[in-house]
Design a protein around this nucleic acid. Structure first.
Lengths: 228, 228
DNA sequence: TCAAAAGTGTTTTTTATACACCCATGC
DNA sequence: GCATGGGTGTATAAAAAACACTTTTGA
């Protein structure tokens, strides 16, 4: 079973990023018009090759930064897709990540230039190869993440209302959370700080803006936020 | 960003299996004495190379079968480990799986012959490279799995008592579950079938044997078994 | 004035936890 | 008879869900 390294087959290894953003009360996904064969012109996830001197995480960061202009993007591994025939263009092992970014902050010129486009997560075009399955897995991971950590930090603007946060959660879990119960749950976590400003966008009365407390990077003991 | 496939670097891709078993009320791990440099003679997970015509899952199955003699082993992906310097012997990207097997059923001659040995999960020797981190991730995945699915099917013998199942859960979660509450929870899932036999091993009174219902492969709507 | 979101409070239901207690039996 | 794990039931606590109600203000 164990043989010298140099005798073994080598593989092309790629990363594919499921990039989530949030805009107009909708969870969105950044998709690419593929510019090489096979399946040129069709929609796909953002991807790239893994270089000899970098980890898959490094490769994913590099690709994300090159497309959005952002650094320190939140990102987590999802799964490896490695069926020998998954890519008709050749045998490619792909490591999938999901990333969360603030649509407002990213460099639109840059992503436009790459032929990238934001799509509502619920209304995606047909994707190449196994990319739809990748998206499904990524969304699943995002839900697991959001069930234990408040994910708004990466998707919402600095300052946001609890209604905005709830609508984000609605779109991640594709269900309606009770406004009163959601509010109580979130505030009990003690990770948000209320500001002395009010948003007049959502209602006539106006809703307080909140922001994430700087210190509270991680909850010491992860309480469940939503049940899945 | 996107270039023809043939211009890109290729990588050695391996799989490493965290093989869990259960024996004498202990969760155990199958470890290998490594028989090639570097780190020859040290303990490691069971591993193997990914061949050109197989998926990582295929490679993992192949390796597991070659060592245990068993087929259709339960197995799930854990994570990819890909730091460029993680293996001093060369740049190897490793896809980690965890597997659950019935220690009684596997072929001992075969695993002995490979230099494999079962270790209590709580008392592992020092492992090579990043294998301890792999084990930690795998155990974490096993806990997540066991919190939603009854995992005894793969780790326990066909027929087992509820006390055995509880002790398995105790060792997976490294805590003591209340006997009465655990029993009620498990029976409420309706996935076990009581047999008309009693085990006299654990107690004087004797405890009913149970087995997994054949039909209930999957619960339609996954209820939580334990909270994590 | 009234519709609509913001925000607070209460009730009900469900689930988890703690633990009391009887049972059967080998010693 | 008594210690021991098996098995059942009950009381309590905590969490989730449902929903009533008050506030504010632009249209």
């Amino acid at each position: 079973m164990q043989q010298p390294y140099h005798l073994k087959a080598k593989h092309l290894v790629a990363i594919d990023d499921t990039v989530f953003g949030y805009e107009n009360n909708e969870l969105k996904l950044l998709l690419f018009k593929r510019n090489l064969e096979p399946a040129k012109g069709q929609w796909s996830l953002v991807g790239g090759w893994v270089d000899p001197d970098e980890s898959c995480e490094d490769a994913s960061c590099r690709v994300l930064t090159s497309i959005t202009g952002l650094k320190n993007i939140f990102m987590e591994q999802v799964k490896v897709f490695s069926k020998p025939d998954r890519d008709p263009g050749g045998r490619v092992i792909s490591v999938v990540f999901y990333a969360l970014i603030d649509i407002q902050k990213h460099n639109h010129q840059l992503s436009d230039q790459f032929g990238a486009q934001w799509w509502p997560a619920t209304k995606l075009p047909k994707l190449i190869f196994d990319h739809q399955e990748m998206v499904n897995c990524a969304l699943n991971n995002l839900q697991i993440k959001a069930s234990r950590d408040l994910v708004g930090r990466d998707l919402l603007p600095e300052e946001f209302t609890l209604t905005q946060l709830r609508q984000l959660y609605n779109s991640i879990f594709m269900k309606e959370f009770d406004p009163g119960n959601f509010r109580k749950k979130i505030l009990s976590l003690n990770t948000l700080q209320r500001l002395d400003k009010k948003s007049k966008n959502g209602s006539k009365k106006g809703a307080y803006f909140y922001k994430f407390k700087d210190d509270k990077e991680e909850l010491e003991f992860k309480e469940r936020i939503v049940n899945i």
